[in-house]
């Protein structure tokens, strides 16, 4: 049986699951960033998602919008740097699109992803091919928009797969934005750490839903 929606308490559990995955990925993300950046991406994401875990425990979250939006503000305040602004903006934008939803279904996930991408692009001015997290996020949003079924589980799988494929492609790009841009061709062969992170987030959400 496929899952069409998850409840508010399941969304909270899902965000704990995502947060734990990100905290556990600290060393892997650090190594990925050391290859083409200054090596602080793993530390920042771990610090950010530890804050998300604390927020999920401490804060009263009345709907799915609250969970997404407060995840965004927690990341924005605790990561700092470009990652904080981008990942924070993504979840805040996604949250606003959910408009007080009490469950997360496929239609809601689609709207949230699209709005999240719009916020990221507004904030960071990155386009496909710049070797940023947009290279993994935009294909995921495109995949979501093409889906017309009602299964959240299926959609989450499509999103994770498209994001993964986009992330893999960043290995063939030279960085055009952020601190890695002056490395130019030296960034070839390495995936963008931000693209890895957004893929980890989508994969964790998919895993959580499939485990229900």
């Amino acid at each position: 049986m496929t899952i069409d929606s998850i409840s508010l308490s399941q969304v909270k559990d899902a965000f704990h699951f995502i947060a734990n995955r990100m905290v556990d990925s600290k060393d892997m993300l650090t190594q990925a960033d050391q290859a083409i950046g200054d090596g602080d991406h793993g530390i920042g994401m771990a610090r950010g998602f530890e804050a998300v875990n604390n927020m999920l425990e401490a804060k009263t979250l009345n709907n799915v919008e609250d969970v997404f939006f407060n995840t965004g503000t927690s990341l924005l305040a605790s990561i700092g740097g470009a990652s904080g602004a981008i990942f924070g903006s993504f979840f805040m934008g996604a949250g606003k699109a959910l408009q007080g939803a009490e469950i997360l279904n496929a239609a809601g996930y689609q709207k949230a992803l699209e709005a999240g991408l719009a916020m990221v692009k507004k904030r960071g001015n990155a386009s496909i091919g710049d070797k940023t997290m947009v290279d993994a996020l935009e294909p995921a949003v495109d995949a979501a928009n093409q889906y017309s079924g009602s299964s959240l589980e299926e959609l989450a799988g499509l999103v994770a797969a498209a994001s993964h494929e986009g992330m893999e492609k960043t290995k063939t790009f030279t960085a055009k934005i952020g601190k890695a841009k002056t490395l130019g061709e030296r960034t070839l062969g390495h995936a963008d750490p931000g693209a890895i992170s957004i893929t980890l987030i989508f994969e964790a959400l998919k895993e959580y839903i499939s485990s229900l």
Binding site: D38, D40, I43, G44, R47, L76, A77, S78, I79, G80, G81, A82, S83, G84, A85
Partner: peptide
């Protein structure tokens, strides 16, 4: 001031 080599967050 942010963390080491990372910009400060907007609320700061």
């Amino acid at each position: 001031s942010g963390n080491v080599f990372a910009a400060p967050a907007p609320d700061q």
